[in-house]
Design a protein around this nucleic acid. Structure first.
Length: 316
DNA sequence: AAGACGAAAGTGGTTGA
DNA sequence: TCAACAACTTTCGTCTT
């Protein structure tokens, strides 16, 4: 990509206005792959492509010639897209037949080439798994960064022999779930298992096993990371979203969130915020989009209001 | 009439002996 | 391996707007 092209992209982007309220206050979130209006909360563009420069440039000279040589490493292909082949025919690069006394050497080279590449079960497994990983990720609509994280996790799992005895589908789903957690792109276990053929039970068990063995020590998903997504799905404004996040921060400080399902807490915070800002959604509507029951929302809501009775003035 | 509320019983998974 | 347990769900009746 040459310099003028990049400049053009930026120019184009600055002309974009919110299609709903014509505000120019737009926020681009590359991590979640969304372009949103900060004023009314409308998601203008989803699943966008990161058009920024591929690699960092450390000085002016590098910036000038940020050329790319060949395809970049691609962790989503089982040999990272960097493999070479030794041709099957017994000919050298000039097309001459290799003399028989050198032929045995060629056989040995070919043999080791294959052994180090796709010819062992681990690698065949990996090739299959990455395929499945891609299928899942695109079904749920996850962007590249998460997929690559998942691929890296899967590689590590294979290296540590964690896959043996488990279904590829299960492990793929589990690593994808782990990647979502790591990248803080909120996807529930439910959503991922729904796209997979594996059962929730298996994916959950595999995920715990893998995260323990690989030492991922991930924090439990923060309810805050769900807010943005769900409040947009519900068509709530940015104000409500901010309020919900603020509520959650206070709730977290007073330990109201620990031990609770993050989605339930998030749902309650959204509900509370929507009430405060007079954009009330029914408990049922929120429950449906977030994937918890009304009862859970009520319970969390009760806890929140009990605590926030002191600080309700701050939220309002 | 729809939504909110709450009680009670049921469910699936974790934990600790 | 099993029972206790916490969080959450399901169900259903009652209250509120």
């Amino acid at each position: 990509m040459t310099k003028p092209e990049i400049a053009k992209d930026i120019e184009l982007e600055e002309q974009i206005k919110c299609t709903e309220c014509k505000s120019e206050h737009l926020v681009r979130d590359y991590q979640r792959g969304e372009l949103t209006c900060r004023t009314c909360g409308l998601v203008i563009d989803e699943n966008q492509i990161d058009q920024g420069p591929e690699w960092r440039a450390f000085d002016a000279e590098q910036n000038e010639r940020r050329a790319r040589g060949g395809s970049p490493m691609n962790p989503l292909v089982h040999d990272k897209g960097l493999s070479t082949d030794i041709a099957w025919s017994n000919r050298d690069s000039y097309g001459n037949v290799v003399p028989s006394k050198n032929r045995s050497q060629l056989y040995r080279m070919r043999k080791w080439q294959n052994r180090t590449r796709a010819n062992n079960s681990a690698d065949r497994n990996l090739a299959l798994a990455l395929n499945e990983l891609n299928r899942l990720a695109s079904k749920i609509g996850l962007q590249r960064q998460v997929r690559e994280t998942a691929a890296m996790l899967y590689r590590k799992a294979v290296q540590k022999n964690l896959v043996r005895g488990r279904s590829i589908e299960g492990v793929a789903a589990a690593t994808l779930y782990g990647a979502c957690r790591q990248c803080e792109v909120p996807r529930t276990l439910d959503e991922i298992t729904k796209a997979s053929n594996a059962t929730k039970k298996e994916v959950g068990r595999t995920y715990r096993y893998i995260s323990r063995e690989l030492g991922l020590n991930l924090m439990p998903a923060s309810p805050v990371s769900y807010i943005t997504r769900y409040s947009r799905e519900l068509g709530l404004s940015g104000k409500v979203e901010d309020a919900a996040i603020k509520i959650l921060q206070e709730a977290t400080e007073s330990e109201l969130t620990s031990g609770r399902g993050p989605t339930g807490v998030a749902a309650a915070a959204i509900y509370l915020a929507s009430v405060v800002y007079n954009q009330r959604k029914t408990q049922k509507a929120i429950a449906d989009t977030v994937g918890v029951t009304e009862v859970t929302i009520r319970n969390r809501y009760k806890e929140l209001t009990e605590y926030l009775s002191i600080t309700a003035a701050v939220a309002a």
